[in-house]
Design a protein around this nucleic acid. Structure first.
Ligand SMILES: [Mn+2]
Ligand SMILES: [Mn+2]
Ligand SMILES: [Mn+2]
Ligand SMILES: [Mn+2]
Lengths: 236, 236
DNA sequence: ATGGATTATTAGGCAAACCTAATATATAAT
DNA sequence: ATTATATATTAGGTTTGCCTAATAATCCAT
């Protein structure tokens, strides 16, 4: 007999979370997954074993997890749904930027491919979500995300905000308050010693951002202000 | 710690199901609830006790269940969400009539009141769903549904289809195939003996409908064709 | 190489929603 | 009043997804 419950929502969130973390490092420590999902490492470890048995990921002990091709395809399907809903919520329902991430994170699990594709049609097949992140294709392929973290820039360097790496609503609210959003010019002015917070200039306002926050703001660097060493890194 | 899962979807489906059945009879036998949800009576009974403890309904053994005011309010909130999504899916995404019921039944549980009200705004505050059923208010009040079941009409009687009482996608597909939809004229031509199926005329086509199906097609009767006995019933 | 920190596993539990099989109770029909 | 039927409860079990506490294995830095 089939149950009333979906019992696939957890699985989907694991895959999505791993895919999102994978753009920062690969393989992903199980600890990171647990922390992001707000559960114990034991529970995460259990579930990861189950997903490994089903060939959706591979776990190398003491290293971390990597999605298989099928796992990544599935993850990107969920991400596609979330980002399309984000577009709908902002563009059509006029819900603010910092709210749509969490709202879409609930809808994504209740959406099949028929609705997804009809929605994509209706929205005119957008290529990025309101936070600037690319929307995967119907086939579950995602263009490589662009930009480098603001946190990697040094004083004097700056550029245009390309996207906000997907993360909790709290961070988005924090950024929304300071009017830090995709498309805007931003410049690093100062970095406190001992890997401390960055002082940044956006519009005509100065703000101090913690390293964790700065790591999620992805920049298209302004090449003029950029040190040549970093230029090499980016191009080569 | 909070769980990843909602664990409220079941509760919502119980309340909604009971509210929908309540328009046919009151109180509702627990058996009906179990059957509609496709679960055992034991499971339904368990859950109904839990909902009773939380004052969302009242259960009189060997009679059935009635929603409390709070229970009905909650149920109508879910119904509002479902029917607004149904409008969205048909009007904006151009998904057919018979599909939207089930699709919206998944979205309804992933939708909070912010999204619901923004959606209602966006759709221009529709008053009925694509199946003709009334959409409850923000406060959880629903206008009394109109019409009498097609199954109660006798040969020669007819009228306009007002709405299809909410039920499975199978029934909707069945009706969609025969072009039986809200707004159309329909007339009973014949009833087979021993409470058998009805032969009906819609457009220029004749169809034979089982009693169960006919019970879900709600009619605004054409008073000229109507027997005076039934007229009394309706008006008085 | 060795000790301390990180990572993984084991053991034992819990709650929500389901299930079947068996039993008990109330209502309805003869 | 008795019996048959419908309804309810009890008992015991499953799966999913989470938990804590304790232990074991590995990695890394000195
Ligand atoms: Mn989600
Ligand atoms: Mn986004
Ligand atoms: Mn539903
Ligand atoms: Mn409807």
């Amino acid at each position: 007999m089939k149950h009333l419950h979906d019992f696939g929502e957890s699985e989907e969130m694991y895959l999505k979370t791993i895919a999102e973390l994978a753009s920062k490092q690969d393989p992903i420590p199980v600890t990171w997954v647990a922390e992001r999902l707000g559960i114990s490492t034991v529970s995460a470890s259990e579930m990861i074993h189950r997903l490994e048995n089903r060939r959706l990921l591979e776990h190398t002990p003491y290293k971390g997890v990597c999605l298989t091709d099928e796992g990544r395809r599935r993850a990107n399907t969920i991400i596609r749904r979330q980002r399309l809903w984000e577009c709908f919520l902002t563009d059509k329902l006029a819900i603010t930027w910092d709210h749509v991430h969490d709202l879409a994170c609930r809808l994504e699990h209740a959406t099949d491919s028929m609705v997804t594709e009809a929605l994509a049609d209706y929205l005119g097949h957008p290529t990025t979500c309101p936070h600037g992140n690319p929307i995967p294709s119907t086939e579950g392929e995602m263009p490589p995300p662009e930009g480098i973290p603001l946190g990697d820039l040094t004083p004097g360097e700056g550029g245009v905000i390309l996207r906000i790496h997907p993360v909790s609503a709290l961070l988005l609210r924090h950024l929304a308050e300071k009017r830090i959003e995709p498309g805007k010019e931003i410049e690093v002015r100062e970095i406190a010693p001992f890997d401390g917070p960055q002082s940044i200039l956006i519009g005509d306002e100065m703000h101090v951002l913690g390293r964790e926050v700065a790591a999620h703001i992805m920049i298209q660097p302004n090449t003029e202000t950029l040190g040549s060493r970093k230029l090499m890194e980016i191009l080569g």
